[in-house]
Design a protein around this nucleic acid. Structure first.
Lengths: 190, 190, 190, 190
DNA sequence: TATGAATGAGGTTTCATTCAT
DNA sequence: CATGAATGAAACCTCATTCAT
């Protein structure tokens, strides 16, 4: 992704926050402009349409998520530690960026999502998928499609983060590690 | 839920289908009216507003889901069988009613959801929650909040159904039972 | 053309007048609505878009022109009288309906025109074309494509009417009949 | 007209072509800039506004038309030959410059036209008008206002050129000379 | 001179909702 | 109960124009 112009970034960030508050439908371009501190027309300098803005916002969040993950990866840890690190660092990213979580969940359940090129959608899944692939080869994980397993793991992270953010339950360190353990137990060879 | 008038039901069903196709935003009342074979004004005899319609549609889907689940429950089975039955019957309901799945997913990730009274939202979860509660008491399941576990199980069902419906992966009988097994392994005491 | 709803007609007539005053570009839908005494949205009940409105307005003017011509035709006159009647009655229609003249001239010279189905465009020309065809067969007129001759005659009428309406020259009865005579002389076999 | 700067000319020519393709309304300044290979702001160094640009474009086309006519005039020909030369050379100019024809026709039928100073509008008409004036004095032409006759002749040329360019009819050398003959017959004293 | 990002008024169009029939 | 024409606020988007560089 190219270096993003100051205003373009302001527009993306404003949209992200507003969608968390009000949803797609409740976020008119005029509000985005106001929050980003630009004129309405300026948005159309950077994005062809509202649809394009939302599509690019999805890519932008994927990019941010990816960036955040890269910082946490280390090679010098055993396999189970690697899984826990991945699970919890993703979890914490969403906890710290609830607007991203909320947006992604709205997006993937909207008619926008199927119109995205597939390879981009799955970019973020790939790292976990490959990790699980290695585990399968080493006989640590179940003999099941690695796409399937990685999606199930991803989904567990999202679900846990949503529960926490919505305040339905308060998850402490103990609960988090138990959840990661749950998912580990679910995919490891019994 | 009261016995539903012919036209009211037609409106609900039309809305359900249209939202699956086009999303919330792409489903104007005029289209609902057309698909339901009624006049636009008629919708307002049954529902105060579009918001009300969507809120009631959520309750309606919850009701349908509940109805479908009741048929499958039997008492004379052991605990693990009971879990598998619950997991797979929910899964099959969503496979057979993709419009319900799609609507619920859109709904719970929209600003409508937080405005629902909580006790209703969780009605459908309760049966699984109680089931898991019993398992916990019997020492079969982990010592973890039963709400948390039931949500994680629920989420796994939804995720699996979405993958199948989207056609990203084709899940046969073998994969389904492996997924149920995965979730069983995740919550059982190791 | 079907019987036109009261409001639909008001919209068409308002558009006609406004386009004469301000041109296509200077005639926003809001102004049309205001002049027609309807809400902006109402226009879209009768017309899909501004383009559609303008296209239908063209058909409407063609219809009005045709209606006006039918009143004047009589069979019991000799050939040259028939020509003069056609020329002058068309001329007078435009003089009495300058907004129609102005609209048609804008329309046929705009990118809208080529998008019209041809057979409709030429409907109004047909009567003159057939008349000239008969004259050709009888050896009264030149041996030249009758489409070509009818267009040249039509164009002479439009041009004369425009001069008169713009006030560039004042054309009295004498000038009118001289102009009709000119066109008669131009197409008759010398 | 002064010697035209390179870029100014590029802007005028681009506007001319774009208006032929898309009409006034379909020709935003940004498109003109792009086609002319200049920045949007640059246009405003040469023209005060879009209106000014279009007004000056009209003068520019009149200038080009006049230039083209001058080449063809010769003194040593008899009167009827002079008429035919004028008619056909104008006709051929428009055939070779359809964008000019299209622009002028749009322009004179738009609200721009009445705002032009009259003497400039008629500059191009003058040459024909004077020619006809001489014919009238010599008793060759009808005893009718020479403005009127010159406009009718001019209009016949435009009409013929439009038919040819639109491809409605294909006019060969024979048809062209018949048309010129028609107009000659229409204005000559019978 | 030349640029092009930025502006914001104003355009077209949508759509939830009403109400006379 | 049912209709659907009518409403008008508000949405998305365009584009002539400006101005700091």
């Amino acid at each position: 992704m190219e270096i993003i112009a100051e205003k373009k970034k302001a527009i993306l960030e404003s949209t992200l926050k507003l969608i968390k508050e009000n949803g797609f439908h409740g976020t008119p371009m005029s509000l985005v402009a106001k929050k980003a501190g630009v004129a309405a027309g300026t948005i159309y300098h950077y994005f062809d349409s509202k649809d394009t803005l939302i599509m690019e916002l999805f890519e932008y969040t994927q990019f941010r998520l990816q960036q955040a993950m890269l910082k946490n990866l280390r090679e010098d840890m055993d396999f189970k530690e690697g899984f826990f690190l991945r699970w919890t660092s993703r979890y914490h990213f969403f906890i710290q960026n609830p607007d991203v979580l909320f947006f992604i969940e709205q997006f993937v359940n909207s008619p926008y999502f199927p119109r995205c090129p597939q390879e981009r959608n799955e970019r973020i899944q790939n790292e976990i998928k490959q990790f699980i692939g290695i585990g399968k080869e080493q006989g640590v994980f179940r003999d099941l499609d690695q796409n399937l397993m990685s999606i199930m793991v991803h989904s567990s992270i999202i679900t846990a983060a949503k529960i926490q953010i919505d305040g339905k339950l308060v998850l402490g360190e103990n609960e988090i590690s138990q959840l990661a353990q749950m998912m580990w137990d679910s995919i490891r060879k019994q």
